[in-house]
Design a protein around this nucleic acid. Structure first.
Length: 689
RNA sequence: AGCGGGAUGGGAUAGCCAGGAGAUUCCGCCGGGCUCAUAACCCGGAGAUCGGUAGUUCAAAUCUACCUCCCGCUACCA
């Protein structure tokens, strides 16, 4: 690795985070893959030798669980999606040099080598932990094989995360009341030996690494809290059939955690590329082992820690080279709200293509809508506007009018005139800016600069009015214009690989614009070319309305299918607060009576130190004064509370919050915790019916 | 609450890290021009005291402190 500007003398390896094959790809995924693809193509434009790789992440419990549900083997399920992803990438011109998967032999071998190296370097230890076990199925229950209650929030939780409640990551053994997802029976916790990678060995290394790593700000800053706060060791094994066996003794029923073999696929895919083209042509080991290369990871911002903490440690522990940059793309929102696959608030890759739009249009939108790491909003209206004004009006129209005029009047590029100094300077400036932007990992600016050159072209042709000049006077103007078109084609190629290939052909160029480098921007265009065709079609307003309606309809359809009221925090601008849906299940009077509701009077209220929301209340409920913790610290003036009548659930089971015991629950409405009270003079302790 | 990331004309963005003429670009809007071109393109104009407050400085969008509001991650609203 170097810290020199791109292009460097060593090859670059650009990777994209591995897609996990649990569902279809949507525009959120595409943003990352398109960005990685455009960036790697752009590096090549600068003359940097670049290899672009990724693969499907085949292992792990979610796939194993899904496979059981679907009644197929995990490998078959994974492979089916793997093919599907490969096809989708091809459709969107996301052109990996190798797109492999983690169950291939190359990855399996390399993964074992990594683990072996960690053991040789004494970074691995074994310890006993509590693991869920299904006695009926006679099977261990890692991650998603077990469901139960989250020990932190009490919500239903699946395996390694509390996905319905507090979203917290759960370590093995933490989940309460564990139930096997295989048999539905209660699970037991048994002691079990597992392997850990000692991350604390890499503490100092990571502190240095995070300061020299390049890429987006979110990737450079987010891991600091973890690294500087001290690292917990990383459990690298699971009790599972589906995965890569832990090498060595006793490895028959322990497999490696999916996050071990997944990033190693970056190396494996590079190695496969090397084997395909020959190590003379490209040597994977010199990049990954000797460090003679620039490793650049393009990922979604949800897996920053994995790439800036776990992965560099894994590499360092096996004496591999470290990444030069981690670029984490932001998320894609739809119409200003978060994308949600469960609510079908998403644009699926297939859906976009079915709508009949060229893949390049979406590529351009996603790669240049905003800075790399910033979240991007997608709406059909915005999409149409950018396609119309930037691609059709600026780029397409300039290319078309310039080439058409040149073709009609000169049969191509006017000869025996040379490029004007001003235009040459303008193009050279664009090339410089483009290169600078890429060195900042700034695709947006690079793309914008190319479009700006097309705008310059429009101004230039307009000012010079070649249509009002005789042939001799028009020749230099058109010579300049054709050159500008060529430069635009070259610079935009990473974003619009197919459209610019078409334009390249219109220019009469023999080869492919994908093989052109930035220097070709100033090389003379062919003397002859035919009549051009329009590159981009505009998207009409009616079409946008239609697409918006279709999108709204499918979101509506999905929400009426499962009205579980999730995500009620969304705000609506027009009619105030969104109400939670009414409960569907009736309860009996007896069930209601199980609640012992009482009138209480607050006698004392104080904030709990260190907690923002929690307050400790002393509430008189007739028989006694109870200590109750309530999350109202910021929502009420605590000093004014004493004397206030409230309604209390008196038979709530005791709980400890922030070290303070709570013996009941104070009823309050909504997010503002509007306290329930009485309107007459009911004495404390009066039963509420 | 802690840690990150934001808050710049109607919308979207740049500049701020290396403080200096009331601020970039795109879209939208108003007026004009032109016709080679996809009713495109070109020119001109209106419009922001750069989230708030207080500082540092001859000078702050740009530095410092505090605060408010959004978005992530982490975390205690029983």
């Amino acid at each position: 690795m170097t810290d020199e500007d791109y292009p460097t003398d060593d090859p670059a390896v650009v990777t994209c985070g591995l897609p996990y094959p649990t569902g279809d790809l949507h525009i959120g995924h595409l943003r990352t893959y398109v960005s990685g693809d455009a960036f790697s193509r752009a590096l090549r434009k600068l003359g940097q030798e670049t290899v672009f790789v990724s693969g499907t992440d085949m292992h792990g419990t979610p796939i194993a669980v899904q496979a059981i549900e679907a009644g197929v083997g995990p490998l078959d399920l994974g492979l089916e999606r793997h093919e599907q992803y490969a096809d989708t990438f091809e459709e969107f011109s996301v052109a990996f040099d190798t797109y492999g998967h983690t169950d291939e032999e190359t990855n399996v071998e390399l993964t074992r080598e990594f683990v072996g190296a960690w053991e040789d370097n004494d970074h691995v230890y074994e310890t006993e932990i509590q693991v869920a076990y299904d006695p009926d199925a006679d099977q261990w229950l890692p991650d998603r094989y077990v469901e139960g209650t989250c020990p932190y929030c009490g919500e239903h939780a699946r395996g390694d995360e509390c996905d319905e409640g507090c979203q917290r990551h759960l370590e093995p053994g933490e989940i309460e009341a564990p139930v096997s997802t295989i048999t539905g029976n209660s699970a037991e916790y048994h002691e079990r030996a597992h392997k850990f990678l000692r991350l604390s060995d890499f503490q100092e290394y990571l502190e240095g690494f995070i300061n020299r790593m390049e890429g987006t700000n979110n990737a450079k800053n987010q891991p600091r809290e973890w690294i500087e706060g001290g690292l917990e060791d990383f459990c690298i094994t699971r009790d599972l059939d589906w995965g890569i066996d832990y090498p060595g003794e006793g490895g028959d029923d322990l497999v490696l955690y999916v996050w071990v073999d997944a990033p190693i696929e970056y190396v494996a895919a590079t190695k496969q590329y090397s084997e395909r083209v020959g190590t003379e042509e490209f040597d994977w080991a010199s990049v990954w082992k000797d460090g003679d290369g620039e490793i650049i990871h393009v990922i979604g911002r949800d897996i920053i820690q994995h790439h800036t903490v776990f992965w560099p440690s894994m590499l360092a522990g096996a004496d591999y080279a470290e990444p030069r940059a981690v670029c984490a793309t932001g998320f894609v929102n739809i119409d200003g709200r978060g994308l949600s696959t469960s609510k079908n608030r998403a644009i699926w890759a297939a859906e976009y293509l079915d709508a009949g739009f060229h893949p390049d249009l979406l590529r351009y939108y996603l790669a240049t809508a905003s800075g790399f790491e910033r979240d991007v909003n997608f709406s059909w209206a915005e999409f149409a506007q950018r396609v119309n004004t930037e691609l059709a009006d600026a780029v397409g129209n300039f290319a078309y009018r310039a080439l058409l005029f040149a073709n009609r009047n000169f049969d191509g590029t006017p000869q025996e005139v040379s490029l004007t100094d001003d235009v040459e300077t303008e193009i050279a400036q664009a090339m410089d800016d483009y290169e600078d932007a890429l060195n900042e990992y700034d695709l947006r600016t690079a793309g914008e600069r190319a479009v700006a050159l097309a705008r310059f072209g429009n101004e230039y042709i307009q000012h010079n009015e070649p249509w009002n000049l005789d042939s001799e006077a028009a020749a230099p103007v058109m010579r300049d214009c054709v050159q500008l078109v060529k430069a635009v084609a070259v610079l935009l190629q990473p974003f619009l690989p197919e459209k610019t290939e078409t334009l390249w052909a219109q220019l009469g160029e023999d080869g492919r614009v994908s093989d052109a480098t930035i220097a070709d921007c100033l090389q003379a265009p062919p003397a002859e070319f035919g009549e051009p065709a329009e590159l981009f079609e505009k998207i009409e307003d009616d079409r946008v309305t239609e697409l918006d309606e279709a999108l709204a309809a499918k979101i509506e359809a999905a929400s009426s299918e499962d009205a579980d009221g999730e995500g009620m925090a969304d705000e609506t601008a027009d009619d105030g607060i969104e109400l939670e849906p009414l409960a569907e299940d009736d309860i009996s009077f007896e069930e209601f009576q199980a609640l012992d509701l009482r009138v209480g009077e607050v006698v004392e209220a104080e904030g709990i130190e260190g907690a923002d929301d929690l307050a400790r209340l002393e509430v008189d409920i007739g028989h006694e004064v109870r200590q109750i913790v309530a999350g109202i610290k910021q929502l009420h003036d605590l000093d004014a509370l004493p004397g206030t009548r409230v309604v209390v659930v008196a038979n709530m089971e005791p709980s400890e919050l922030f070290g303070v015991e709570s013996n009941g629950m104070v009823l309050a409405a909504g997010e503002d915790a509007d306290l329930l009270t009485t309107h007459e003079d009911s004495e404390p302790g009066t039963k509420v019916m």
